[in-house]
Design a protein around this nucleic acid. Structure first.
Lengths: 228, 228
DNA sequence: GGACTTTAGCTGCGATCCCAATTTTGTCAT
DNA sequence: ATGACAAAATTGGGATCGCAGCTAAAGTCC
């Protein structure tokens, strides 16, 4: 046993090439599933189930879940239950607040280090998101959104700050997926153009405002519609 | 075996009462050791060594280290080496920057929820820190400093933000300990009085400024003296 | 037929075993 | 004495096993 589910093994291998350390692959895989919303809140994970699904023993899964628990992406409910914590209004506000504190600043920091190549890459991602929006492909939209923001942040020197932001996204992802799934992507406006303009103009304050607006727009109205 | 080192078991038990889950106790214990600077950067941890020292098997230690690695408090250097990452100027600036973004805001948020009891508790902690400063007790000073800041932050509703800040402190602790050990606590000024005044006055902006000043003072000059 | 009790099957957690890799140490040749 | 190379010991990572706890479903009694 433990050599089953070769299809899912391929997913993991695909995510991190061949695995230098296994539990890191699992961690990355689960992380990607969370950020892109492939795992919805409320459902229970199980080390044995995930292990079987990924074709490994439960040990590396445990390690990965441990790390995710440290980041607040999953929760160990007392004993015998590991779940993706459901979103609450308080948590949502808290998360949103932290994003507003960290992300505009991170973007402004990264601005001087975004060269012409960075702008072009961002433009490509943005174009892809337009397609995803038009075709209603929620998954592609979320991946594009993630890529857009983090190609900016990662261009900056603030590795720790970027990591903190990742942690926040990790907690948002599952919830966003559910929301998008319920409302569709039709009424999502593409706020990234403004950010791109600010970057090309080299205007740090405008970029700050653009990112802040993107966050507020993308999540603000969603928040209002979700606990009615 | 695995039932040795009862003395250290007591340390763990003392830290978290009796242990509901073991790996959580280990995690808390290591976390405390890091924040209070009992573990210095550069030294290598070993799962087996820690396991023996704490009187458990290496499994819960692995879990705990995994979590700490997720938070950046320890680093898994390739294979076969787990270390507390040494501080670099870049990391230091990054950390400091994040603290400035998150902590003043967290304090301002917590301000309305700090009642008279909160103020009294803070005053007590501050008094304890004065004693620690006078007697040159680095460890007590660091514990007091931690207690002071986090009784403020935890009074607020922003659980995630507080957790983020804890992550930052976790990475600072070991380094601070070394610095204090080298320079002593003699030239540390107590910035907390200003914060206390701001809290009693209910002045959010003043509190923001006080916390920011505290961070800048406590670490700014240290930074300058440490890579000369 | 409904409600309570019991039991059986999962669950996560900790211990132990094993392995590959790396670091360290010891030895031999220069 | 010093260098390199090889062998051994220690490391982290993964797999497997066993245990205690909770959950839920089945069974029983009124």
């Amino acid at each position: 046993m433990a050599r089953a589910a070769s299809a899912v093994i391929e997913v993991v291998d695909d995510a991190v090439e061949d695995a230098p350390v296994l539990h890191a692959s699992i961690y990355e895989e689960l992380r990607r599933r969370l950020i892109t919303g492939k795992i919805v809140p409320g459902v229970g994970l199980s080390t044995r189930g995930l292990a079987a699904e990924l074709g490994v023993s439960q040990m590396p899964v445990r390690d990965a879940l441990s790390r995710l628990a440290a980041e607040g992406a999953v929760e160990i409910r007392s004993k015998r239950k590991i779940i993706v914590p459901p979103m609450t209004p308080e948590r949502f506000d808290d998360l949103l607040h932290c994003r507003m504190l960290l992300e505009p600043d991170a973007a402004a920091q990264a601005l001087p280090r975004l060269g012409a190549v960075g702008v072009r890459r961002l433009a490509e991602i943005d174009a892809g998101m337009d397609v995803a929006l038009a075709s209603g492909d929620v998954l592609a939209y979320m991946e594009g959104n993630f890529a857009f923001h983090f190609t900016i942040y990662r261009a900056g020197a603030a590795a720790i700050q970027t990591r903190l932001i990742e942690t926040l996204w990790l907690q948002f992802g599952p919830f966003m997926r559910v929301v998008y799934g319920r409302f569709g992507t039709a009424n999502l406006v593409d706020q990234h153009r403004v950010a791109l303009d600010a970057i090309e103009a080299g205007d740090a304050e405008a970029l700050r405002a653009a990112i802040a607006g993107d966050i507020r727009d993308g999540m603000g109205l969603i928040a209002r519609n979700s606990w009615a």
